[in-house]
Design a protein around this nucleic acid. Structure first.
Lengths: 147, 147
DNA sequence: ATTGCAACATATTGCGCAATATGTTGTAAG
DNA sequence: CTTACAACATATTGCGCAATATGTTGCAAT
């Protein structure tokens, strides 16, 4: 219980502070859509499903992010001539510029996190190991078997 | 960036697994409303603002949780005769029963977390220290000053 | 050619945190 | 007594993750 709360608070804190950094640097990409933008840049053109596969998310989750990116003028789409089901997305010039800014920002953030980890410990690593441990042995099993 | 993702994933994972444990034990209290229920039990009767103060949250956030608890029959409310602004909430019998179940569950969960911490390390402590470090020196300052 | 299935896209709903605006009531200052 | 402010409650909106249902299109098997 209490671990959940603490983790959630930290998650919100990081999201807030990341947003503040983005604002300072003039980055309009939604914080939680950066990986989507990066993946799209690497793929060049991609459908929602392509992006979902690459990100390891559901295509629905990707679909929910796209309208905002379209509205921000960061991406565009066109229909696929070969496959009427697919809508092909790609970055706009503005999207490319924004992504370049983000890449600069990422370098700075990485350094900031290194500094943070040096200060308090390697949270990143411990969180990953915790998540893995919980995937291997979920809470309900930890309760039933008693250990 | 990547820390944020990892923390968020862990947060969702814990919420899911907590929900599963609750389901198994027949607890219908929403996972994120347990502290509210506990606080209300301790106070006996309380307004939304009382609860918010006690929880350290905004009263709006508390207000958003109350309708669901009412719908689940876990709490009731009545008007305050002395102060027409206030709506006084209290647990129902069902709410008391559910909270008792939750308290049993909490003991089990605590043990499960102790086991988890023994396995991977004291995540709880490290997360708290990380959050505190970020409150003292936010990400933007860590970027600007360079350390 | 039709039928059935898979892939893809979209819409809807629910949960949860957060911010903002509005309205109501109580109380204290003038 | 009226006016102004504080406390409280409510409503609305936005963001984000998740689950589910519904269409649509493509393709392969019959």
């Amino acid at each position: 219980m209490f671990l959940g709360r603490a983790v959630e608070r930290l998650s919100i804190l990081i999201a807030e502070q990341s947003k503040a950094v983005f604002d300072d640097m003039g980055i309009v990409i939604p914080v939680r859509s950066c990986s989507l933008m990066t993946v799209l840049a690497n793929l060049g053109t991609a459908s929602a499903s392509d992006l979902a596969k690459e990100l390891g998310h559901s295509h629905q989750l990707v679909m929910q992010k796209l309208p905002k990116l379209l509205r921000l003028g960061l991406i565009q789409h066109r229909n696929d001539n070969d496959d009427a089901r697919r809508r092909i997305f790609h970055l706009t010039d503005e999207g490319v510029k924004q992504l370049a800014k983000f890449e600069q920002c990422r370098v700075l953030l990485r350094a900031a996190y290194e500094q943070l980890f040096a200060e308090v410990g390697d949270v990143r690593n411990l969180i990953d190991r915790t998540a893995n441990a919980l995937k291997v042995t979920p809470l309900d099993k930890r309760i039933n078997t008693g250990g």
